[in-house]
Each structure stands twice: as structure tokens, then as C-alpha cells.
Design a protein around this nucleic acid. Sequence first.
DNA 1: TTAAAACCCATGTTATTCCATTTAAAGGAT
DNA 2: ATCCTTTAAATGGAATAACATGGGTTTTAA
Lengths: 160, 160
Amino acid sequence: MPLFMSKYTNKVDGKGRVSVPAQFRASLPSGFQKSIVMYQAVNHEAIECCDLLHIEKVNDSLEGFAPYSDEHDEFSLALMSGLTELCFDGNGRIILPQELMEYAGITNFATFAGKGKTFQIWEPGAFKLELDIARRKVKEKKDLLRFRLNKTERIIKDES
Amino acid sequence: MPLFMSKYTNKVDGKGRVSVPAQFRASLPSGFQKSIVMYQAVNHEAIECCDLLHIEKVNDSLEGFAPYSDEHDEFSLALMSGLTELCFDGNGRIILPQELMEYAGITNFATFAGKGKTFQIWEPGAFKLELDIARRKVKEKKDLLRFRLNKTERIIKDES
DNA sequence: TTAAAACCCATGTTATTCCATTTAAAGGAT
DNA sequence: ATCCTTTAAATGGAATAACATGGGTTTTAA
């Protein structure tokens, strides 16, 4: 599975267009490379992005609730109505929706930050501050992270 | 599988006409793109919409009840009798039925909110309030959502 | 006959597509 | 290493198409 990693800062032009880093476009699963889906990040004033396949998984998970239950209603509305699917133009750019630009405080430049299975788009200054904070927190809590066998390793283990 | 996502607010003209967002029309299954089906949302003062194929699935699931049971009677009557099928005009508009407009309190503008397999139509102000509530509830109950293998993964798993 | 629905066409706006240019990265040869 | 060449990526602007909306005309059904 290809992962989103590294960070890139690109220009946002007058129409709200930005190039999505070519590395990130290449990391999208095959068959889902035409577009990305974005929404307000839950914990920060940033835009969170993923691929459509990921969204389909979330939607499948909603079927765990009874179709007319309160929970199905609340989750489907809160999760799905806040999404925006954006297709790339011929040059790999997207147009950032006004609402999300304002939420993240983005004006002339946007920082793309890989987060593994997802990536985020930040106002560059805000990202620097947040990265600092995150790094300090990781130093404090570094012992909390435990390594697990990943999927590939589990398969190899089964075969041996 | 195409999903209804994102939200759009469109104008309702003097004749009660509204454009159904082109994205939503494109998300209708092929062969079912001429019309949508709508009814009073069970949990809110909003209009719930889906495609005919979805209604056929709901109808099929009624067969889970014994044919002359009280439940079969109650559910089939409540769910099926309140449905309205609306066809698009040449520009992708529908005419909102008076009864449903009143139920949802819609006058001059209507907010279309994606919910995955269905979408809802709200009076814009009411939607803002409800979205707020839904987001808060989801934060409280976020542990209830469990990721499930999606269809693609299940197929791969079956083959292995 | 009359009101409502279906149909048709015109318009302003917004998004998409296309092409040209600039910038940056990668590779090869000196 | 340094410079030069080649390729890919990012950026800018203009042409084009799609969409939402307004209004009018015809058809349908009560």
C-alpha cells in the first residue's frame, strides 16, 4: 500500500487552484487517481484529504447501524455531507473550496503534509507551529507507540 | 458505487422548481437517472431522497417480516405510501411537492445534503442547526463506528 | 376552461479544459 | 564535483463547456 509522506508547499493562484504534489497523486490507489476527497480535519484548523476508496469503506461501515436508527442518521449526515470530491485538471491541480480555505486560513500558499493513509493541507505558518507541538508531544509520549506486524508481514508469516 | 456526498444550497423559484445538484444526478445508478424518490425523513423535518433501485431494496427487505404480520403491514404502509417519484425536467430540476415543502419548512432556498446512499433536502437554517447537533453527537459516540471490510476486500479475502 | 405540469430556449455565472511558460529535478558527460 | 542536457513538475492565462436560473409556450388532466 502506497503511503502519503513528506511535505510540500505550493502556490494557490487567484482562482484557488493548487497543484497536488505529484508524489501524492502517485500514491492514490489504482482506479482512484482522478480525484481526492477532503473535509475539515477534526482536531485542527486544516483540511484532511483521502481517496474515494477510503470513503467507500466509511460508508460501508455505516451499514453496521440499522438504516433508520438515530446513529445511522447522525453519522451519515455528519460524515458524508461535509465531504467534497475534487477532480484533478490536466496538470494535477484542484480548486480549493472557499469554505475549506477559510476554515484552514489558507490564502496564497498551502502546505501538503503526508500522514500515511491520509494527508492534510495547512496554511504554511500554522503548519510550522503545529509540527513543533506535535514533535514535542511525541518526545514526551514516545514510549506509547508499539510496533505491530503489518499486513505484508502477516502474510509472509502465514506462508512460512 | 457512486455516493451522495457534500452539500449544496439552491434556489427554489416561484413555481417550486429546484435544480438537483448535478453531482447528485451523476451519482444515480445507470438506468435510474430520470427521477428520484422522496419522502418525509423519519427523524427530522427534512425531505429524504433516494433512487428507485434503493426503494426496490427496501421493499425486498420487507420480506423479512411474515407476509401478514403486523410489522409487515405497518412498515409497508408507512414506508411505501409516503413515497413520491419526481422526474427531472430538461435542466435537471424537479418540482417540490407542496406537502413536503411545508413539512421541511422550505420556502426560497433548499439545502441538499449527501448521506451516502441517500440525500436530504433541508431548509438552510434548519440544516445548519442540525449539522451542528449531528457533529456533536458523532464526537460523543465516535467509538460506535466500527470499520468493516468493504466489498472489494471481502472478494479478495474469499479468493485467498 | 383553467391550473398545473412538462417542455423549450435564453442568460449569467462558475467550473473545466487546453495551451504556453516557468521552475525544478534528474541524468550524463566533461 | 561542475556544467550542460533532458525530463518532469508547477504555474499562469485564455478559451470552452457545464451548470443553475429565469421566463415563456405548449400540453395534460381535472
